[in-house]
């Protein structure tokens, strides 16, 4: 089972638009919410209301700052979940066959009833996409909401991953990246979609659309500045006398 399939019929995955993401973390909440109630062990939290809260998440949003040499710094919000790699190193290291990549759609999954919780797959993943659940002792990862996307009891518009369905900015897109005619493939082609850590040779399916260059960035400008100009310092007449007199007073 832990051999990778020699080919996949589809490459289902996500395209994440870093230009559009506003960093609201709604995808994080939707992911945790959906994956707490159906497929596999729920994503547990430890000390959730205490001093050192910690928990299992399948999707986390980082924030990075880019400082160009000649323009103001820019913040980029960066959601990260399993990239469902073509050449998934997490699958082949698994000693039990719990980790596998599906031939029919390329989704990488964990059979939790066969997982011994050794953690080697998490070590093999460069992206930090796998997290061991501290309660269940099994490895958790993004399932691409496999229990939503084929679920005919859901209305059709809900048959997509929870993170995509909930994203208020439309920064997340779901589709078949092996089909050059699909919306996601065309988006990748039009916007120059990128692989994360290509030097690892993992060939991720998920792609990231880089932020568009900020060509219209105005120079730094303070709206209050005109109102804070120093008042005249060489005042004469009555005001000048008052200023001099008040300055001489002690205190």
């Amino acid at each position: 089972m832990t051999a990778l399939p020699d080919r996949v019929d589809k490459k289902l995955g996500l395209v994440i638009d870093l230009d559009t993401c506003v960093g609201c973390h709604a995808c994080v909440v939707a992911c945790k919410g959906w994956n707490d109630q159906g497929y596999g062990a729920p994503l547990s939290d430890q000390d959730p209301c205490g001093a050192a809260p910690s928990g299992t998440f399948l999707n986390r949003v980082h924030s990075y700052e880019i400082t160009p040499p000649d323009a103001p710094a820019q913040i980029v919000h960066f959601p990260k979940s399993c990239l469902h790699c073509d050449n998934a190193p997490c699958v082949t290291v698994c000693p039990t066959g719990a980790s596998y990549k599906r031939r029919e759609d390329g989704i990488v999954l964990v059979n939790e009833s066969a997982c011994i919780g050794c953690g080697l797959c998490a070590w093999a993943c460069p992206y930090g996409a796998r997290e061991m659940d501290a309660d269940a002792g099994v490895m958790k990862k993004c399932t691409l909401c496999v229990d939503r996307i084929y679920n005919e009891t859901l209305p059709e518009e809900d048959r997509q991953p929870a993170c995509v369905r909930t994203c208020p900015a439309g920064a997340r897109h779901f589709g078949d990246l092996s089909d050059p005619a699909s919306d996601v493939s065309q988006l990748v082609a039009a916007r120059g979609g990128l692989d994360l850590m290509p030097e690892m040779g993992t060939k991720p399916v998920n792609a990231y659309l880089p932020p568009r260059p900020k060509t219209d960035a105005a120079p730094e400008f303070d709206v209050l500045a005109p109102f804070l100009e120093p008042v005249a310092e060489d005042a004469g007449g009555f005001l000048g006398w008052l200023d001099r007199t008040l300055s001489k007073m002690p205190g």
Binding site: L18, Y208, P213
Partner: peptide
């Protein structure tokens, strides 16, 4: 190479959560 972000110096501005994780 991790983020593929370009156009200037890139640094981690904020982690995903204030607490630690696995």
């Amino acid at each position: 190479s991790a983020t593929r972000l370009e156009g200037g110096k890139v640094r981690s501005f904020a982690p995903p959560h204030t607490g630690s994780n696995y």
